[in-house]
Design a protein around this nucleic acid. Sequence first.
DNA 1: CTGTTAGCGCCTTCAG
DNA 2: CTGAAGGCGCTAACAG
Lengths: 317, 317
Amino acid sequence: MAISTVSKVLNNYPYVSEETRRRVREAIHELNYIPNTIAAALSSKQTARTALLINLNTGTQVIDEITLQYIHGALYAAREADIEIITIFLSMIAHMTPEEITRYLQSQGISGLIICGMTREDKYLKELVDSMVFKCVLVDVPYVNETTSCIGVDNEKAQYDVAKKTVTENKVKSVLYIAGKQDAFVTTERLAGMKRLADETGIRLFVRCGEFSERKARELAFRYARKKDAVVAASDLMAIGAMNALIEMDIFRPVCGFDGITLMGYVGKQMNTVRQDFYNIASSAVRELKRLFEGGTGRRVKTKHRLVKLYYEDVII
Amino acid sequence: MAISTVSKVLNNYPYVSEETRRRVREAIHELNYIPNTIAAALSSKQTARTALLINLNTGTQVIDEITLQYIHGALYAAREADIEIITIFLSMIAHMTPEEITRYLQSQGISGLIICGMTREDKYLKELVDSMVFKCVLVDVPYVNETTSCIGVDNEKAQYDVAKKTVTENKVKSVLYIAGKQDAFVTTERLAGMKRLADETGIRLFVRCGEFSERKARELAFRYARKKDAVVAASDLMAIGAMNALIEMDIFRPVCGFDGITLMGYVGKQMNTVRQDFYNIASSAVRELKRLFEGGTGRRVKTKHRLVKLYYEDVII
DNA sequence: CTGTTAGCGCCTTCAG
DNA sequence: CTGAAGGCGCTAACAG
């Protein structure tokens, strides 16, 4: 039995008789043989090692939850797809030049990147992506090139859908829309969804920026919600802020959010929201990266979203 | 210039003249040479690859925050210590037998483990640790053997310290102590700290199990807090629950927690708490593992804790 | 179908 | 102090 035959069995190559295959398996078992991935990688010039680049800029629990779901989804899918992923926090490479980063990653044998939480401020990431040295998948950032795909929910449609549900369920005529951060990628898209809804249904739209801040949203609701029929927020956190304001003012307005996060607290109300399923987005990202590895060209992938009602009374820990 | 000379320069070997060293460095720069970690690992039978095993059993945001801090701290320290870490969620291996897990890890060239979030239910992990195939560092689980160290705050002392602070600051005579889960490793230790405090100061201790649940703690506070001078909880989350109860009952009692997590909400009160610094614990774990790699034997490491006052009004996101 | 033979890119003695 | 040579464990042609 030759070394190479074993290799063929291990890698499920054709042209090995069932008999030999069986005997090899047996021997492997007897000898408690443990294949060495490192050597295999070296020999085959394995080309699917990828780095999961994670931005950890804010330390809020909501972000933490989302981040962790990204990591979890990506690692899980990677195992399924049999590609090796190493996790890297952006803070660990943010001080390096794009060239240094490239070298660092290449020395690790990395040829693919999945980037989560990239913002407009991360110029060096943009350069990294544009150098086209790596196959990239950007999560929640609408940017594409030859070797780069992006993935995320269809923010425009999702915001449209969830707001429409709220609006039609409650015969709403005017809406306070609490948008996200001015320069965020998603803000524009979600706002566009709201505008389309306003055009189609004729509701009056009143837009203010909530900065993705619970407190800010709360203040905005205090000032403007009374005169509107409903509040639509571009994130669950802001929706919670608005809802707290409504409760304090002791008035009822339907509220809807985005994200579908698990929250802790005593809000005790329900609201419509978009569940993005970060876990699934990350695993889709891995699959999309695999497509790129196999020669596919960059494209935009929009994942499905679901609309759910969250009842905050139920999620007290 | 021979291949081997370059290798020597790269690995900072002695017996290379400064002149040659300089010339090699220069050439490396000119040629934009990128060393291949994979090959290096194969050749040197590198022995420091480690797996970070993470338990993700509960999906609460508090747990997520802690988990993420563990991951972050470990990855960061690993980079400093120049050891390679791969992240693995326990859910990905929980269905395997210890033998399968061992094979899986060994085939990846892994010889060290850092285990976060292990509970008494994870029997297969215990077996894995006891097989002594890997060098292990257990985070927050007091168990040690020849090749296994454990690390974490001194729960007994920390609980003692923070409660003592609260007790002496407020001239307390009786305390409601809301303990954690019955069978958790940390519960016993923290309770011991409280008992010592009671013995030393003569305060009356009234103990109930809060299961690490905000809701449960709230209920307990409703029932018992009125007749006590202060509430000490074995976690911040439970402290928040208790505090909410106090607010609803409109009575004041000093409250203290554990963990030092960032919380969201409108509790608007302050409380004493133990800041555990999960990030630091994880990075200490990496350093401890390095010690094991270098031939050290298993031991228990207690990390320092700090006492802090949290003002929840300030941490609204 | 099975076995032989080169490497993969680097580290590590061991002579010069 | 420098260079030549033999692997590390595996894969990938290529001959049998």
